[in-house]
Structures are given as structure tokens and as C-alpha cells.
Design a binder for these strands. Structure first.
Length: 126
DNA sequence: CTTCTGACGAAAT
DNA sequence: CATTTCGCCAGAA
């Protein structure tokens, strides 16, 4: 694992909890990792080692779209393959594919109790 | 130390 | 809807 920002490891273990067919926003991820921001999560995704097994393609922006860059088509292809539906405007319907949060095991390891989680989740899109 | 560049986001236009 | 503006901040040069 590449050693960069101190919150990268926590970000990666959290993103690994997102199951096939579901997506989360950079903001959602950052809301669960203390000390991180949506921007940092973006940097973390850009730095994911190819062999780390982190499903980086399941993290999109808060508008429900895939951020434009080189390789964004590859991300779109992966999500299509997982059954994630996009509207004509290229957006994902949070109602159908939004991730609902990590396992309690993860929350515990992050020092968050269930009440904290519910408060955080109430501010998620959708 | 300074500068520049973003896989971001929210609000305003 | 699309664009712009501003706040934010890590990491590379």
C-alpha cells in the first residue's frame, strides 16, 4: 500500500465495502472518514494501486455523474457491466443504486456508533 | 517556501 | 439542464 495521506488507508477499506451494483459519492465516503474531504477522496481514488482490489469505479460525484477525465469511459463500462443504470443525462438514480453504508464491523473499527452513522446517512443524497 | 493543478461540492446565474 | 465562482487542500515541481 502506497503511503501518502494518512486517511488513504481508511478510505480504501471503506470503499472496499461498497458492493457490486451500488455507488457512493466522494462526499459520502469522506463523511465517514474523519479527517478527510471529498477532494481528498478524489485524490485517493486517483492513487489506487491497480492490484489493491479497491472498487474505485463505484465512487462518483455528488451530482450522480462520472467525473470527466481520461479513462472515465472505462469507469462507465464497469458500472454498466454491474447493472448500474444511467439516465439520458448520464446520471445515476440514487434511489436505485445508492450504497446504504458500511457494515457495523467497519463502523466500530472507525470509532462510530450507530447513532452517529444515522445522522451522517441522513445527509446523503437521494 | 511558493505555485499550480485537480476522479469535489454547493450555490448562484 | 449547463456554466461560473468560490472554498478547499493534498501532492508534485
Amino acid at each position: 500500500m502506497i503511503r501518502t495521506h494518512s486517511t488513504y488507508p481508511a478510505i480504501y477499506t471503506l470503499v472496499k465495502e461498497i458492493p457490486c451494483g451500488e455507488v457512493a459519492s466522494y462526499k459520502m465516503v469522506s463523511s465517514l472518514v474523519k479527517g478527510s474531504t471529498a477532494r481528498i477522496v478524489g485524490s485517493a481514488m486517483a492513487a489506487v494501486p491497480s492490484d489493491a482490489g479497491v472498487p474505485w469505479h463505484r465512487v462518483i460525484n455528488s451530482a450522480g455523474k462520472i467525473s470527466v477525465r481520461e479513462g472515465s469511459q472505462r469507469q462507465r463500462d464497469r458500472l454498466d457491466a454491474e447493472g448500474v443504470a444511467f439516465t439520458k443525462g448520464g446520471k445515476v438514480d440514487w434511489k436505485n443504486h445508492r450504497w446504504n453504508g458500511p457494515s457495523e464491523t467497519w463502523l466500530e473499527s472507525a470509532g462510530l456508533d450507530f447513532i452517529d452513522f444515522l445522522t451522517i446517512q441522513s445527509n446523503w443524497p437521494g
